[in-house]
Amino acid sequence: MLPTKEAMKESWNGRFPVALYEKLQSSEVAIAGLGGLGSHIAVMLARSSIGKLHLVDFDKVDISNLNRQEYDIRHLGKLKTEALAERLLEINPYLTLCVDTVRVTPENVSSLFARQRIVCEAFDAAEQKAMLINTLLEQCPGTVVVSGNGMAGFGDANAIQTRKAGSRLYLCGDGRTDVQDGTGLMAARVGICAGHQANQVIRLIVQAD
C-alpha cells in the first residue's frame, strides 16, 4: 500500500528537524548525466526528500551499465530518463520529476539549466564535463555546480574528496583516475563519488538562506 505523504514526513521526524525536511522538500536539483554517478545521486537525493529533481540524459540502458548504475534487467533498452523516473518514484512517490531526454550541447545548456540553483555534473567523458562546467559558469550565473571528477578503478577510497574550486564549483573525486587510461569503472568507487556529490548538494541546500 502506498504510504501517505504525511506518513513519509512523520518518518523523518525525530531523526532530523522538520524544518530541514521542509527545506529539502522545497528544493530542486538538476542532474546532467544519468550513468554511474547521476543515477546514484538521484536515488540518494530522492531518499533525502528533495522535492524536485530535473533529470537530463539522451541515452538508453545497456547491459554494460549494470555493473555500476542504478538500473536492473527490466530497464534494458529503456531511456535512462524513463527508467530512473520509474525507480525514483518507487522510492519516493511524492517526488516531482522534470525529465529532458536530450544530449547536452553548448547551445542548450542555458535553456536546460539557467533557472536551476544546483546542477550536478555527472557525465562520463572529460570533454563533456569541461563543456558543461565552462558553459554553466559562463552563461548561467545563478548556478552552483557539483562535479564528479576522477573515480575509476578500485584504488584508495579515501583519495576521493570534495573540494571547492572557485566561487561556484565543487569538485568531487580523486581528480586523477581516468577511464581513458584504460581503467574501468566499478560500482563501489563510483558510488563513493556519487555520495560525495549528493552530500555536497544537501550541504548547499541546508546552508542556503
Partner: peptide, 28 residues
C-alpha cells in the same frame, strides 16, 4: 572569475594573477 574558452588566446597573464586550472578526467 571563469575565463571563457574563446578568450584563452586573448587573455594576457600578469605576475600578480591567481589561476585555478581544473583538469577533468573521464568516468561517471
Amino acid at each position: 572569475s571563469i575565463v571563457p574558452k574563446n578568450d584563452y588566446d586573448k587573455t594576457v597573464l600578469q605576475q600578480e594573477d591567481t589561476l585555478e586550472v581544473v583538469q577533468f578526467v573521464g568516468g561517471g
